[in-house]
Design a protein around this nucleic acid. Structure first.
Lengths: 338, 338
DNA sequence: TCCTGGCACTCTGTGCGTGCGAGTGCCAGC
DNA sequence: GCTGGCACTCGCACGCACAGAGTGCCAGGA
């Protein structure tokens, strides 16, 4: 087990490295932090920390930089979450309060998060699977063509065209609309298949084909084509780490374009509480030199989606975690109100 | 006026520079293109081209690179549009044909364009102003709360919440829905305000306030809040120009994040035909070292939105223009079918 | 009049050697 | 177990010379 002072040394190294972006040596460390010991002592501690794999030197006789393992220890044991200041909180709230619809909420959240953390922000749209149905609308566009509009409790709207096997009258349509809504409105998506199972039986034989088609499209929308969308922003912040360019930035941009990768990434994060994935802890290779801080957010107690930021492993973890947590909290409130 | 051969020299310089990304000298030019003259002659021509401002040397006694003016001449007079090959056309069509809804069409288009041109692709959603109304749906979510759903001919769906000044019965709602659709369905957005002007008069006094509120929300959606959305992709391609990094890439990423900037950019492009903006021709400073190739696309003869790519001034103009044109054409077809 | 070969000149990029400074590891002493 | 001291190791910036590519100009030839 590491002594208390060695942990302090590690903390100091992480803080200095995050601040200066340069390997930090024993002398600089004693000057900037009053550890109460001499550089020589710190050197011994550093050697021990290096043996344990928490720090490393880029070259012999350069300063030390934290390893992924070092950051991990820092995040788990040495750093708290830095709460937002009052003005920051108010700014967040003001900024989010102006949103007019769900798209706008997500867009504003992305911008906000990118600005607060000065990193790349990722916000997942409220997921369909965990949402409930607010309303299902059916519109007759042509005798045998129906538009299905699904509205969720989080304000998300999905629409699909349905080509019916047979012409479908307005009255039948109204009937289906009414029956459908009385069954599924307010219910969770996962329950819908069970709830509508026997619905075709309530209709005349000639309409059953159409009803089935509509229902299967609905189920598709709910489950199969349950595309999880997300929005990203603040990619320009990537250029702030102009050292390792473009070796570092390239794969990150590629990863960000691959929504599948990001969704998987967010999916792997724990369902409750904040998750920090550091460097190689990220399964996707292109993100091996980045850290991902993510947290679930939702309108009620339960998380309906996640948001977070992607930045270099050398990031201000306490500040970033604080910003992510605060934003998630306010977004949850906004969604609950709408 | 420049002689025929000097134009050929300029063309050769542009082509070589685009290919090699390095300043091109007189000797290399004569070796790679059979101009039928000696390097010394080419040198004279180059001196003349430099006097005219079409090319420049980065340093004394380095090769020449085209200036913005040089590219302009190249695009206007020396280069055609390189048509897509048969297999490419089929690939485009196959790729776009799989789209299930408008979002998907746009998303696929962005990916396709980014892959074809290996540059940053920008696709504007079909604009609301130039579209026609397919259907307006009103849903009662609570006694005094209505959801307004607007469906356009291009498949775009917009929804808004309306808080009514007074409770609004189902029958009144159905009445309004019917009247509204009979007036505006199939009409252009720009005509809608005129068409619904006197609609409140047809209702009982107690409902007029609500009807007015709904209508003004509709008009807002159509006009005022006519947010022009767009989707971008292929930003990872920016890293292919790793020279001038990050000085160049930074402002470009920032510009791409500012949808307002991009929309303005596309808006400035000509309404019909393909527009190429080269370097400083772009009003936005951050894009001074990039070129923007854009073209309108639409379901019928008329363009409803634009798409294009953003790349370095040193780009393969004929190829890029060919890809942009082809994609726009196929997207138009897809939209017309749906 | 226009093209060509030749020549001197100008720069940039690169490789090499050197010196400096930051940082380390180790050791003896307190 | 902490400290000061000391020798050592690198990386990096600097200076310098050199090769190579490219140019401009000029005189000669079609």
């Amino acid at each position: 087990m590491l002594s208390e002072r060695r942990l302090q040394v590690l903390r100091a190294i992480v803080q200095d490295y995050v601040g200066t972006e340069e390997p930090v040596g024993s002398k600089a460390l004693t000057e900037r932090h009053n550890l109460g010991v001499s550089p020589a002592t710190v050197r011994n501690d550093m050697a021990a920390l290096e043996d344990e794999g928490f720090i490393a030197q880029p070259h012999t006789s350069a300063g030390r930089i934290p390893t992924d393992k070092g950051y991990r220890l820092f995040v788990d044991k040495l750093a708290g979450v830095k709460p937002m200041t009052g003005p920051e909180r108010r700014a967040i709230q003001n900024f989010l309060d102006g949103a007019v619809d769900l798209d706008d909420v997500v867009a504003r959240t992305v911008r906000l998060l990118a600005q607060l953390t000065r990193q790349v922000a990722v916000v997942q749209y409220p997921s369909l699977t965990r949402s409930t149905v607010r309303h299902v609308e059916l519109l007759s566009l042509a005798p045998a063509r129906v538009m299905l509009v699904l509205i969720t409790d989080t304000g998300r709207v999905e629409q699909r065209m349905v080509d019916c096997p047979a012409p479908f009258g307005e009255t039948s349509l109204a009937d289906l609309r009414a029956r459908l809504n009385s069954r599924v409105a307010g219910r969770r998506f996962t329950d819908v298949p069970r709830l509508v199972e026997d619905l075709p039986e309530a209709f005349e034989a000639e309409d059953r084909g159409t009803v089935s088609t509509v229902l299967s499209t609905l189920l598709e929308t709910l489950v199969e084509d349950n595309e999880e969308r997300l929005m990203i922003g603040g990619t320009a912040n990537l250029t702030r780490f102009a050292h390792d360019f473009p070796l570092t930035i390239r794969p990150v941009l590629e990863a960000l374009e691959e929504q599948v990768v990001l969704l998987k990434l967010l999916g792997e994060a724990g369902d409750s509480g904040m998750t920090v994935k550091i460097g190689h802890e990220n399964a996707y290779e292109g993100l091996n030199s980045t850290s991902v801080v993510s947290v679930g957010y939702g309108s009620g107690g339960e998380a309906v989606a996640k948001l977070g930021v992607v930045g270099p492993t050398r990031m201000d973890y306490p500040g970033t975690m604080g910003a992510v947590r605060a934003v998630a909290r306010y977004v949850g409130q906004i969604l609950a109100e709408s």
